[in-house]
Nucleic acid binder design. Sequence first.
DNA 1: ACATTCGGTTGACTTTAATCAAGGTATTAA
DNA 2: TTAATACCTTGATTAAAGTCAACCGAATGT
Lengths: 245, 245
Amino acid sequence: MKQVASHKCSSHDHTQPLSELLQVTLFQGCDPSFLQKLEVAGITHRFSKNHVVFMQDDLCEWFYVIRSGWIKLFRQTLDGDEVIIDILPAGKVFGETDIFDNRLYSCSAEVVQDAEVIAYPISMLRNEIATNQAFSMKMLKHVVQGQREKDKEIEHRTIQNAPQRLGCFLLRLIPAKKAGPIMLHLPYDKTLIAGMQSETFSRALARLKEDLNLKVRGSTIEIESMDALITYTCSACSNVYPCED
Amino acid sequence: MKQVASHKCSSHDHTQPLSELLQVTLFQGCDPSFLQKLEVAGITHRFSKNHVVFMQDDLCEWFYVIRSGWIKLFRQTLDGDEVIIDILPAGKVFGETDIFDNRLYSCSAEVVQDAEVIAYPISMLRNEIATNQAFSMKMLKHVVQGQREKDKEIEHRTIQNAPQRLGCFLLRLIPAKKAGPIMLHLPYDKTLIAGMQSETFSRALARLKEDLNLKVRGSTIEIESMDALITYTCSACSNVYPCED
DNA sequence: ACATTCGGTTGACTTTAATCAAGGTATTAA
DNA sequence: TTAATACCTTGATTAAAGTCAACCGAATGT
Protein backbone atom coordinates (compact mmCIF):
# COMPACT_ATOMS: atom_id res chain seq x y z
CA MET A 1 0.00 0.00 0.00
CA LYS A 2 1.66 3.17 -1.19
CA GLN A 3 1.23 6.46 0.56
CA VAL A 4 1.91 10.03 -0.38
CA ALA A 5 4.35 11.09 2.27
CA SER A 6 3.24 14.68 2.63
CA HIS A 7 -0.25 13.81 3.78
CA LYS A 8 -1.05 12.91 7.31
CA CYS A 9 -2.96 9.79 8.06
CA SER A 10 -3.64 7.82 11.19
CA SER A 11 -5.02 4.42 12.06
CA HIS A 12 -7.07 3.10 14.96
CA ASP A 13 -8.19 -0.45 15.61
CA HIS A 14 -11.71 -1.58 16.40
CA THR A 15 -13.08 1.91 16.80
CA GLN A 16 -16.68 1.19 15.99
CA PRO A 17 -18.41 -2.18 16.15
CA LEU A 18 -20.64 -3.61 13.43
CA SER A 19 -22.68 -0.81 11.83
CA GLU A 20 -20.28 -0.02 8.97
CA LEU A 21 -20.35 -3.32 7.13
CA LEU A 22 -24.11 -3.49 7.36
CA GLN A 23 -24.39 -0.38 5.24
CA VAL A 24 -23.24 -2.49 2.32
CA THR A 25 -25.93 -4.70 0.82
CA LEU A 26 -23.38 -7.44 0.29
CA PHE A 27 -23.04 -7.94 4.03
CA GLN A 28 -26.66 -7.63 5.05
CA GLY A 29 -28.02 -10.90 6.32
CA CYS A 30 -24.62 -12.54 6.49
CA ASP A 31 -23.43 -15.13 8.93
CA PRO A 32 -22.93 -13.11 12.16
CA SER A 33 -19.76 -14.94 13.09
CA PHE A 34 -18.23 -14.01 9.75
CA LEU A 35 -19.22 -10.40 10.22
CA GLN A 36 -17.76 -10.34 13.67
CA LYS A 37 -14.48 -11.80 12.48
CA LEU A 38 -14.34 -9.07 9.87
CA GLU A 39 -15.16 -6.41 12.45
CA VAL A 40 -12.37 -7.53 14.73
CA ALA A 41 -9.90 -7.49 11.87
CA GLY A 42 -11.11 -4.15 10.51
CA ILE A 43 -8.78 -1.20 10.74
CA THR A 44 -10.03 2.36 10.56
CA HIS A 45 -7.90 4.81 8.63
CA ARG A 46 -8.21 8.56 8.40
CA PHE A 47 -6.81 9.76 5.12
CA SER A 48 -6.35 13.32 3.97
CA LYS A 49 -7.25 14.53 0.53
CA ASN A 50 -4.89 13.29 -2.21
CA HIS A 51 -3.82 10.27 -0.19
CA VAL A 52 -3.46 7.22 -2.40
CA VAL A 53 -5.15 4.25 -0.75
CA PHE A 54 -3.78 1.79 -3.26
CA MET A 55 -2.40 1.74 -6.78
CA GLN A 56 -3.45 -0.30 -9.75
CA ASP A 57 -1.40 -3.53 -9.80
CA ASP A 58 -0.62 -3.37 -6.11
CA LEU A 59 -1.15 -6.67 -4.36
CA CYS A 60 -4.74 -6.72 -3.16
CA GLU A 61 -4.73 -7.41 0.57
CA TRP A 62 -7.57 -5.25 1.83
CA PHE A 63 -11.00 -4.14 0.81
CA TYR A 64 -12.52 -0.96 2.15
CA VAL A 65 -15.77 0.52 3.34
CA ILE A 66 -16.08 4.30 3.26
CA ARG A 67 -17.33 5.74 6.53
CA SER A 68 -17.02 9.36 5.46
CA GLY A 69 -15.43 11.40 2.69
CA TRP A 70 -15.02 10.66 -0.99
CA ILE A 71 -12.88 8.16 -2.88
CA LYS A 72 -11.92 8.30 -6.54
CA LEU A 73 -11.22 5.12 -8.49
CA PHE A 74 -9.11 5.69 -11.58
CA ARG A 75 -6.70 4.18 -14.05
CA GLN A 76 -3.67 5.65 -15.73
CA THR A 77 -2.85 5.25 -19.40
CA LEU A 78 0.56 4.68 -20.91
CA ASP A 79 0.80 8.29 -22.02
CA GLY A 80 -0.03 9.58 -18.57
CA ASP A 81 -3.70 10.44 -18.88
CA GLU A 82 -6.03 9.57 -16.05
CA VAL A 83 -9.43 7.98 -16.48
CA ILE A 84 -11.89 8.19 -13.64
CA ILE A 85 -13.78 4.95 -13.25
CA ASP A 86 -15.94 6.03 -10.32
CA ILE A 87 -16.33 8.56 -7.51
CA LEU A 88 -17.61 6.91 -4.34
CA PRO A 89 -19.41 8.54 -1.41
CA ALA A 90 -19.75 7.26 2.17
CA GLY A 91 -21.33 3.84 2.53
CA LYS A 92 -19.72 2.33 -0.55
CA VAL A 93 -17.28 -0.56 -0.63
CA PHE A 94 -14.25 -0.77 -2.91
CA GLY A 95 -11.42 -3.15 -3.69
CA GLU A 96 -13.67 -6.12 -2.97
CA THR A 97 -13.74 -7.56 -6.47
CA ASP A 98 -10.02 -8.03 -6.99
CA ILE A 99 -9.98 -11.47 -5.48
CA PHE A 100 -8.98 -13.45 -8.54
CA ASP A 101 -6.17 -13.56 -11.05
CA ASN A 102 -2.96 -12.32 -9.56
CA ARG A 103 -4.85 -10.63 -6.77
CA LEU A 104 -3.83 -7.23 -7.99
CA TYR A 105 -5.99 -4.14 -7.72
CA SER A 106 -7.53 -3.37 -11.09
CA CYS A 107 -7.48 0.37 -10.53
CA SER A 108 -6.06 2.99 -8.19
CA ALA A 109 -7.94 4.60 -5.31
CA GLU A 110 -7.32 8.14 -4.12
CA VAL A 111 -8.97 10.27 -1.48
CA VAL A 112 -10.86 13.19 -3.05
CA GLN A 113 -12.11 14.60 0.22
CA ASP A 114 -10.74 13.78 3.66
CA ALA A 115 -12.03 10.31 4.38
CA GLU A 116 -12.44 7.70 7.04
CA VAL A 117 -12.24 4.24 5.57
CA ILE A 118 -12.24 0.84 7.22
CA ALA A 119 -9.90 -1.78 5.83
CA TYR A 120 -10.79 -5.47 6.08
CA PRO A 121 -8.53 -8.35 5.03
CA ILE A 122 -9.53 -9.56 1.59
CA SER A 123 -8.36 -13.05 2.56
CA MET A 124 -11.35 -13.34 4.88
CA LEU A 125 -13.67 -12.41 2.06
CA ARG A 126 -11.99 -14.88 -0.23
CA ASN A 127 -12.23 -17.57 2.37
CA GLU A 128 -15.90 -16.97 3.06
CA ILE A 129 -16.68 -17.07 -0.63
CA ALA A 130 -14.84 -20.34 -1.01
CA THR A 131 -16.48 -22.04 1.93
CA ASN A 132 -19.93 -20.50 2.32
CA GLN A 133 -22.25 -21.24 -0.56
CA ALA A 134 -24.86 -18.73 0.53
CA PHE A 135 -22.33 -15.92 0.76
CA SER A 136 -20.82 -16.93 -2.53
CA MET A 137 -24.24 -16.34 -4.07
CA LYS A 138 -24.49 -12.96 -2.39
CA MET A 139 -21.11 -12.03 -3.75
CA LEU A 140 -22.10 -13.16 -7.23
CA LYS A 141 -25.22 -11.07 -7.05
CA HIS A 142 -23.17 -8.14 -5.80
CA VAL A 143 -20.77 -8.35 -8.74
CA VAL A 144 -23.57 -8.77 -11.27
CA GLN A 145 -25.17 -5.67 -9.77
CA GLY A 146 -21.84 -3.93 -10.22
CA GLN A 147 -21.85 -4.93 -13.90
CA ARG A 148 -25.26 -3.33 -14.34
CA GLU A 149 -23.85 -0.12 -12.87
CA LYS A 150 -21.02 -0.22 -15.37
CA ASP A 151 -23.47 -0.69 -18.23
CA LYS A 152 -25.31 2.35 -16.98
CA GLU A 153 -22.08 4.29 -16.78
CA ILE A 154 -21.22 3.35 -20.36
CA GLU A 155 -24.65 4.49 -21.42
CA HIS A 156 -24.36 7.75 -19.54
CA ARG A 157 -21.00 8.64 -20.98
CA THR A 158 -22.33 7.86 -24.45
CA ILE A 159 -25.61 9.75 -24.57
CA GLN A 160 -25.93 12.11 -21.63
CA ASN A 161 -24.58 15.63 -21.92
CA ALA A 162 -22.67 17.26 -19.11
CA PRO A 163 -25.61 18.82 -17.21
CA GLN A 164 -27.51 15.53 -17.39
CA ARG A 165 -24.52 13.55 -16.17
CA LEU A 166 -24.15 15.94 -13.28
CA GLY A 167 -27.86 15.73 -12.53
CA CYS A 168 -27.62 11.96 -12.53
CA PHE A 169 -24.64 12.16 -10.19
CA LEU A 170 -26.66 14.31 -7.80
CA LEU A 171 -29.64 11.95 -7.93
CA ARG A 172 -27.44 9.05 -6.91
CA LEU A 173 -26.50 10.97 -3.77
CA ILE A 174 -30.10 11.06 -2.62
CA PRO A 175 -30.82 7.78 -0.84
CA ALA A 176 -34.55 7.67 -1.62
CA LYS A 177 -37.11 9.74 -3.41
CA LYS A 178 -38.22 12.61 -1.24
CA ALA A 179 -40.71 15.36 -1.68
CA GLY A 180 -39.84 19.00 -1.22
CA PRO A 181 -36.44 20.69 -1.24
CA ILE A 182 -33.37 18.56 -0.65
CA MET A 183 -29.91 19.48 0.56
CA LEU A 184 -26.84 17.70 -0.77
CA HIS A 185 -23.15 17.89 0.01
CA LEU A 186 -20.52 17.60 -2.68
CA PRO A 187 -16.88 16.85 -2.09
CA TYR A 188 -15.45 20.22 -1.28
CA ASP A 189 -13.20 19.97 -4.24
CA LYS A 190 -15.70 19.81 -7.02
CA THR A 191 -13.06 19.07 -9.57
CA LEU A 192 -13.23 15.79 -11.42
CA ILE A 193 -16.65 14.79 -10.21
CA ALA A 194 -18.85 12.89 -12.57
CA GLY A 195 -16.05 12.33 -15.05
CA MET A 196 -15.69 15.77 -16.58
CA GLN A 197 -13.25 18.69 -16.47
CA SER A 198 -13.69 21.32 -13.79
CA GLU A 199 -14.66 23.98 -16.33
CA THR A 200 -17.29 21.71 -17.80
CA PHE A 201 -18.51 20.90 -14.32
CA SER A 202 -18.82 24.56 -13.48
CA ARG A 203 -20.80 25.29 -16.61
CA ALA A 204 -23.00 22.25 -16.12
CA LEU A 205 -23.82 23.33 -12.59
CA ALA A 206 -24.60 26.85 -13.80
CA ARG A 207 -26.90 25.31 -16.36
CA LEU A 208 -28.73 23.27 -13.74
CA LYS A 209 -29.02 26.35 -11.53
CA GLU A 210 -30.77 28.16 -14.32
CA ASP A 211 -32.93 25.37 -15.70
CA LEU A 212 -33.95 23.78 -12.43
CA ASN A 213 -33.74 26.52 -9.81
CA LEU A 214 -30.88 24.83 -8.01
CA LYS A 215 -29.32 26.83 -5.20
CA VAL A 216 -25.62 26.42 -4.55
CA ARG A 217 -23.75 27.61 -1.48
CA GLY A 218 -20.18 26.36 -1.38
CA SER A 219 -20.32 22.60 -1.35
CA THR A 220 -24.01 22.50 -0.45
CA ILE A 221 -26.68 22.17 -3.09
CA GLU A 222 -30.37 22.72 -2.59
CA ILE A 223 -32.68 20.99 -5.00
CA GLU A 224 -36.11 22.55 -5.22
CA SER A 225 -37.96 19.98 -7.29
CA MET A 226 -36.67 16.48 -7.43
CA ASP A 227 -39.18 15.55 -10.11
CA ALA A 228 -37.89 18.30 -12.37
CA LEU A 229 -34.36 16.99 -11.92
CA ILE A 230 -35.46 13.46 -12.68
CA THR A 231 -37.24 14.50 -15.86
CA TYR A 232 -34.29 16.61 -16.91
CA THR A 233 -31.76 13.86 -16.33
CA CYS A 234 -33.44 10.55 -16.92
CA SER A 235 -35.11 11.25 -20.25
CA ALA A 236 -31.80 10.51 -21.94
CA CYS A 237 -31.43 7.21 -20.14
CA SER A 238 -32.73 3.69 -20.45
CA ASN A 239 -33.26 3.44 -16.71
CA VAL A 240 -36.26 4.67 -14.84
CA TYR A 241 -35.62 6.49 -11.58
CA PRO A 242 -34.72 5.22 -9.08
CA CYS A 243 -32.26 3.30 -11.18
CA GLU A 244 -30.32 1.65 -8.35
CA ASP A 245 -32.62 -1.33 -8.16
CA MET B 1 -38.65 -14.17 -26.72
CA LYS B 2 -39.78 -11.69 -29.33
CA GLN B 3 -39.08 -12.10 -33.00
CA VAL B 4 -39.25 -9.80 -35.98
CA ALA B 5 -41.77 -11.52 -38.20
CA SER B 6 -40.23 -10.65 -41.52
CA HIS B 7 -36.98 -12.48 -40.83
CA LYS B 8 -36.60 -16.18 -41.32
CA CYS B 9 -35.19 -18.28 -38.57
CA SER B 10 -35.02 -21.97 -37.97
CA SER B 11 -34.21 -24.24 -35.04
CA HIS B 12 -32.61 -27.65 -34.76
CA ASP B 13 -32.03 -29.71 -31.66
CA HIS B 14 -28.78 -31.38 -30.67
CA THR B 15 -27.03 -30.56 -33.91
CA GLN B 16 -23.48 -30.59 -32.62
CA PRO B 17 -22.20 -32.24 -29.47
CA LEU B 18 -19.99 -30.55 -26.88
CA SER B 19 -17.47 -28.28 -28.64
CA GLU B 20 -19.49 -25.04 -28.48
CA LEU B 21 -19.69 -24.60 -24.73
CA LEU B 22 -16.02 -25.38 -24.35
CA GLN B 23 -15.15 -22.28 -26.36
CA VAL B 24 -16.30 -20.26 -23.39
CA THR B 25 -13.80 -20.06 -20.54
CA LEU B 26 -16.62 -20.29 -18.04
CA PHE B 27 -17.37 -23.86 -19.06
CA GLN B 28 -13.85 -25.15 -19.43
CA GLY B 29 -13.04 -27.74 -16.81
CA CYS B 30 -16.64 -28.06 -15.67
CA ASP B 31 -18.37 -31.12 -14.35
CA PRO B 32 -18.89 -33.25 -17.53
CA SER B 33 -22.34 -34.37 -16.47
CA PHE B 34 -23.42 -30.74 -16.15
CA LEU B 35 -22.02 -29.95 -19.56
CA GLN B 36 -23.77 -32.90 -21.08
CA LYS B 37 -27.09 -31.91 -19.58
CA LEU B 38 -26.62 -28.47 -21.07
CA GLU B 39 -25.70 -29.94 -24.45
CA VAL B 40 -28.80 -32.07 -24.55
CA ALA B 41 -30.99 -29.11 -23.69
CA GLY B 42 -29.22 -26.79 -26.12
CA ILE B 43 -31.16 -25.57 -29.11
CA THR B 44 -29.42 -24.22 -32.18
CA HIS B 45 -31.04 -21.24 -33.87
CA ARG B 46 -30.23 -19.66 -37.19
CA PHE B 47 -31.16 -16.01 -37.13
CA SER B 48 -31.05 -13.55 -40.00
CA LYS B 49 -29.69 -10.06 -39.70
CA ASN B 50 -31.94 -7.72 -37.69
CA HIS B 51 -33.58 -10.55 -35.79
CA VAL B 52 -34.12 -9.63 -32.17
CA VAL B 53 -32.99 -12.48 -29.95
CA PHE B 54 -34.43 -10.92 -26.82
CA MET B 55 -35.51 -7.55 -25.53
CA GLN B 56 -34.45 -5.72 -22.40
CA ASP B 57 -36.89 -6.62 -19.60
CA ASP B 58 -37.99 -9.84 -21.25
CA LEU B 59 -38.05 -12.76 -18.86
CA CYS B 60 -34.61 -14.36 -18.98
CA GLU B 61 -35.04 -18.04 -19.80
CA TRP B 62 -32.06 -18.75 -22.03
CA PHE B 63 -28.46 -17.86 -22.35
CA TYR B 64 -26.66 -18.08 -25.66
CA VAL B 65 -23.35 -19.05 -27.20
CA ILE B 66 -22.55 -17.61 -30.62
CA ARG B 67 -21.43 -20.23 -33.10
CA SER B 68 -21.16 -17.84 -36.02
CA GLY B 69 -22.20 -14.33 -36.97
CA TRP B 70 -22.41 -11.17 -34.87
CA ILE B 71 -24.68 -10.08 -32.04
CA LYS B 72 -25.26 -6.55 -30.82
CA LEU B 73 -26.20 -5.86 -27.21
CA PHE B 74 -27.93 -2.54 -26.71
CA ARG B 75 -30.29 -0.51 -24.56
CA GLN B 76 -32.94 1.98 -25.52
CA THR B 77 -33.47 5.30 -23.79
CA LEU B 78 -36.77 6.91 -22.97
CA ASP B 79 -36.44 9.32 -25.86
CA GLY B 80 -35.76 6.53 -28.32
CA ASP B 81 -31.98 6.67 -28.66
CA GLU B 82 -30.07 3.44 -28.77
CA VAL B 83 -26.88 2.77 -26.85
CA ILE B 84 -24.68 -0.08 -27.95
CA ILE B 85 -23.25 -1.93 -24.97
CA ASP B 86 -21.25 -4.48 -26.93
CA ILE B 87 -20.79 -6.15 -30.29
CA LEU B 88 -20.03 -9.85 -29.92
CA PRO B 89 -18.29 -12.16 -32.39
CA ALA B 90 -18.45 -15.97 -32.58
CA GLY B 91 -17.36 -17.79 -29.46
CA LYS B 92 -18.87 -15.33 -27.01
CA VAL B 93 -21.65 -16.02 -24.53
CA PHE B 94 -24.45 -13.60 -23.71
CA GLY B 95 -27.50 -13.41 -21.48
CA GLU B 96 -25.72 -15.50 -18.85
CA THR B 97 -25.54 -12.85 -16.15
CA ASP B 98 -29.24 -12.06 -15.83
CA ILE B 99 -29.87 -14.73 -13.29
CA PHE B 100 -30.84 -12.54 -10.37
CA ASP B 101 -33.40 -9.92 -9.53
CA ASN B 102 -36.54 -10.36 -11.51
CA ARG B 103 -34.70 -12.53 -13.97
CA LEU B 104 -35.14 -10.00 -16.71
CA TYR B 105 -32.63 -9.37 -19.46
CA SER B 106 -30.72 -6.18 -18.73
CA CYS B 107 -30.33 -5.30 -22.38
CA SER B 108 -31.60 -6.26 -25.81
CA ALA B 109 -29.78 -8.55 -28.24
CA GLU B 110 -30.03 -8.23 -31.99
CA VAL B 111 -28.37 -10.06 -34.86
CA VAL B 112 -26.00 -7.77 -36.76
CA GLN B 113 -24.87 -10.39 -39.22
CA ASP B 114 -26.64 -13.69 -39.92
CA ALA B 115 -25.87 -15.83 -36.91
CA GLU B 116 -26.05 -19.30 -35.53
CA VAL B 117 -26.54 -19.23 -31.78
CA ILE B 118 -27.14 -22.02 -29.31
CA ALA B 119 -29.67 -21.43 -26.57
CA TYR B 120 -29.30 -23.14 -23.21
CA PRO B 121 -31.82 -23.00 -20.36
CA ILE B 122 -30.70 -20.42 -17.83
CA SER B 123 -32.41 -22.45 -15.11
CA MET B 124 -29.71 -25.10 -15.48
CA LEU B 125 -27.02 -22.47 -15.04
CA ARG B 126 -28.81 -21.07 -12.03
CA ASN B 127 -29.16 -24.52 -10.56
CA GLU B 128 -25.52 -25.42 -11.06
CA ILE B 129 -24.43 -22.17 -9.45
CA ALA B 130 -26.66 -22.81 -6.46
CA THR B 131 -25.51 -26.38 -5.90
CA ASN B 132 -21.94 -26.61 -7.16
CA GLN B 133 -19.49 -24.56 -5.16
CA ALA B 134 -16.69 -24.96 -7.66
CA PHE B 135 -18.83 -23.79 -10.54
CA SER B 136 -20.17 -20.94 -8.47
CA MET B 137 -16.59 -19.77 -8.10
CA LYS B 138 -16.02 -20.07 -11.82
CA MET B 139 -19.11 -18.02 -12.45
CA LEU B 140 -17.98 -15.38 -9.97
CA LYS B 141 -14.63 -15.18 -11.69
CA HIS B 142 -16.38 -14.93 -15.04
CA VAL B 143 -18.51 -12.01 -13.91
CA VAL B 144 -15.58 -10.21 -12.29
CA GLN B 145 -13.73 -10.63 -15.57
CA GLY B 146 -16.75 -9.10 -17.28
CA GLN B 147 -16.52 -6.12 -14.92
CA ARG B 148 -12.91 -5.58 -15.92
CA GLU B 149 -14.01 -5.53 -19.55
CA LYS B 150 -16.60 -2.89 -18.74
CA ASP B 151 -13.97 -0.78 -16.98
CA LYS B 152 -11.89 -1.02 -20.09
CA GLU B 153 -14.84 -0.03 -22.22
CA ILE B 154 -15.50 3.01 -20.04
CA GLU B 155 -11.87 3.94 -20.37
CA HIS B 156 -11.89 3.52 -24.13
CA ARG B 157 -14.98 5.60 -24.67
CA THR B 158 -13.45 8.32 -22.48
CA ILE B 159 -9.97 8.71 -23.88
CA GLN B 160 -9.60 6.88 -27.16
CA ASN B 161 -10.48 8.64 -30.37
CA ALA B 162 -12.41 6.95 -33.14
CA PRO B 163 -9.48 5.43 -35.06
CA GLN B 164 -8.01 4.09 -31.82
CA ARG B 165 -11.32 2.60 -30.73
CA LEU B 166 -11.63 0.91 -34.09
CA GLY B 167 -8.06 -0.34 -33.87
CA CYS B 168 -8.78 -1.75 -30.43
CA PHE B 169 -11.90 -3.43 -31.77
CA LEU B 170 -9.84 -5.06 -34.50
CA LEU B 171 -7.18 -6.22 -32.05
CA ARG B 172 -9.81 -7.97 -29.99
CA LEU B 173 -10.76 -10.00 -33.04
CA ILE B 174 -7.29 -11.48 -33.29
CA PRO B 175 -7.17 -14.47 -30.92
CA ALA B 176 -3.43 -14.27 -30.20
CA LYS B 177 -0.48 -12.18 -31.19
CA LYS B 178 0.79 -13.23 -34.56
CA ALA B 179 3.67 -12.12 -36.69
CA GLY B 180 3.24 -11.03 -40.28
CA PRO B 181 0.11 -9.91 -42.10
CA ILE B 182 -3.26 -10.85 -40.63
CA MET B 183 -6.66 -11.16 -42.26
CA LEU B 184 -9.81 -10.22 -40.35
CA HIS B 185 -13.49 -10.38 -41.13
CA LEU B 186 -15.89 -7.69 -40.07
CA PRO B 187 -19.64 -8.05 -39.94
CA TYR B 188 -20.65 -7.40 -43.50
CA ASP B 189 -22.67 -4.46 -42.34
CA LYS B 190 -19.98 -2.29 -40.87
CA THR B 191 -22.48 0.12 -39.40
CA LEU B 192 -22.58 0.51 -35.65
CA ILE B 193 -19.39 -1.38 -34.92
CA ALA B 194 -17.34 -0.25 -31.98
CA GLY B 195 -19.97 2.20 -30.79
CA MET B 196 -19.73 4.92 -33.38
CA GLN B 197 -21.76 6.26 -36.29
CA SER B 198 -21.23 4.77 -39.74
CA GLU B 199 -19.73 8.00 -41.07
CA THR B 200 -17.31 8.15 -38.18
CA PHE B 201 -16.48 4.50 -38.71
CA SER B 202 -15.78 5.12 -42.36
CA ARG B 203 -13.47 8.01 -41.61
CA ALA B 204 -11.74 6.10 -38.85
CA LEU B 205 -11.07 3.16 -41.15
CA ALA B 206 -9.76 5.51 -43.84
CA ARG B 207 -7.46 6.98 -41.22
CA LEU B 208 -6.14 3.56 -40.23
CA LYS B 209 -5.65 2.67 -43.89
CA GLU B 210 -3.46 5.68 -44.30
CA ASP B 211 -1.55 5.60 -41.02
CA LEU B 212 -1.01 1.86 -40.76
CA ASN B 213 -1.10 0.55 -44.32
CA LEU B 214 -4.28 -1.40 -43.73
CA LYS B 215 -5.80 -3.02 -46.78
CA VAL B 216 -9.57 -3.29 -46.97
CA ARG B 217 -11.51 -5.40 -49.46
CA GLY B 218 -15.19 -5.52 -48.65
CA SER B 219 -15.55 -6.99 -45.20
CA THR B 220 -12.00 -8.32 -45.13
CA ILE B 221 -9.19 -6.37 -43.56
CA GLU B 222 -5.51 -7.11 -43.94
CA ILE B 223 -3.24 -5.85 -41.22
CA GLU B 224 0.36 -5.49 -42.27
CA SER B 225 2.03 -4.82 -38.95
CA MET B 226 0.31 -5.86 -35.79
CA ASP B 227 2.91 -4.08 -33.69
CA ALA B 228 2.17 -0.81 -35.43
CA LEU B 229 -1.51 -1.26 -34.71
CA ILE B 230 -0.82 -2.06 -31.07
CA THR B 231 1.35 1.01 -30.66
CA TYR B 232 -1.21 3.18 -32.41
CA THR B 233 -4.10 1.92 -30.33
CA CYS B 234 -2.82 0.98 -26.92
CA SER B 235 -0.76 4.06 -26.13
CA ALA B 236 -3.98 5.78 -25.06
CA CYS B 237 -4.93 2.93 -22.77
CA SER B 238 -4.07 1.68 -19.32
CA ASN B 239 -3.91 -1.90 -20.50
CA VAL B 240 -0.95 -3.54 -22.11
CA TYR B 241 -1.64 -5.75 -25.11
CA PRO B 242 -2.94 -8.40 -25.00
CA CYS B 243 -5.44 -6.90 -22.64
CA GLU B 244 -7.80 -9.85 -22.44
CA ASP B 245 -5.95 -11.48 -19.57
C1' DA C 1 -30.12 -4.32 -69.44
C1' DC C 2 -32.17 -1.25 -66.46
C1' DA C 3 -33.97 0.50 -62.23
C1' DT C 4 -34.00 0.15 -57.37
C1' DT C 5 -32.15 -0.34 -53.04
C1' DC C 6 -28.80 -0.52 -49.65
C1' DG C 7 -24.45 0.19 -47.78
C1' DG C 8 -20.52 3.01 -47.88
C1' DT C 9 -18.01 7.31 -48.66
C1' DT C 10 -17.33 12.15 -48.67
C1' DG C 11 -18.21 17.09 -47.73
C1' DA C 12 -20.29 20.83 -45.07
C1' DC C 13 -22.04 22.10 -40.87
C1' DT C 14 -23.26 21.79 -35.92
C1' DT C 15 -22.76 20.46 -31.30
C1' DT C 16 -20.23 19.28 -27.33
C1' DA C 17 -16.77 19.33 -24.30
C1' DA C 18 -11.72 19.86 -23.80
C1' DT C 19 -8.24 23.22 -23.71
C1' DC C 20 -6.11 27.67 -23.05
C1' DA C 21 -6.17 31.89 -20.73
C1' DA C 22 -7.64 35.36 -17.62
C1' DG C 23 -9.86 36.96 -13.67
C1' DG C 24 -12.35 36.35 -9.23
C1' DT C 25 -13.03 34.64 -4.49
C1' DA C 26 -12.00 32.42 -0.37
C1' DT C 27 -9.07 30.25 2.80
C1' DT C 28 -4.52 30.00 4.82
C1' DA C 29 0.05 31.80 6.01
C1' DA C 30 3.08 35.44 7.20
C1' DT D 1 -3.79 43.20 7.39
C1' DT D 2 -1.59 41.60 3.56
C1' DA D 3 0.27 38.05 0.68
C1' DA D 4 -0.02 33.59 -1.21
C1' DT D 5 -2.26 29.80 -2.70
C1' DA D 6 -5.90 26.97 -4.19
C1' DC D 7 -10.20 26.65 -6.14
C1' DC D 8 -13.87 28.34 -9.07
C1' DT D 9 -15.84 30.82 -12.88
C1' DT D 10 -16.06 32.82 -17.39
C1' DG D 11 -14.68 33.78 -22.14
C1' DA D 12 -12.39 32.43 -26.41
C1' DT D 13 -10.61 28.88 -29.08
C1' DT D 14 -9.95 24.20 -30.64
C1' DA D 15 -10.79 19.37 -31.54
C1' DA D 16 -13.74 15.51 -32.17
C1' DA D 17 -17.61 13.28 -33.45
C1' DG D 18 -22.54 13.58 -34.61
C1' DT D 19 -25.76 15.19 -38.11
C1' DC D 20 -27.44 16.38 -42.62
C1' DA D 21 -27.04 15.85 -47.37
C1' DA D 22 -25.28 14.35 -51.65
C1' DC D 23 -23.23 10.89 -54.20
C1' DC D 24 -21.17 6.38 -55.57
C1' DG D 25 -21.00 1.52 -56.40
C1' DA D 26 -22.39 -3.15 -55.71
C1' DA D 27 -26.04 -6.32 -55.36
C1' DT D 28 -30.87 -7.43 -56.30
C1' DG D 29 -35.09 -7.62 -58.77
C1' DT D 30 -37.86 -6.84 -62.84
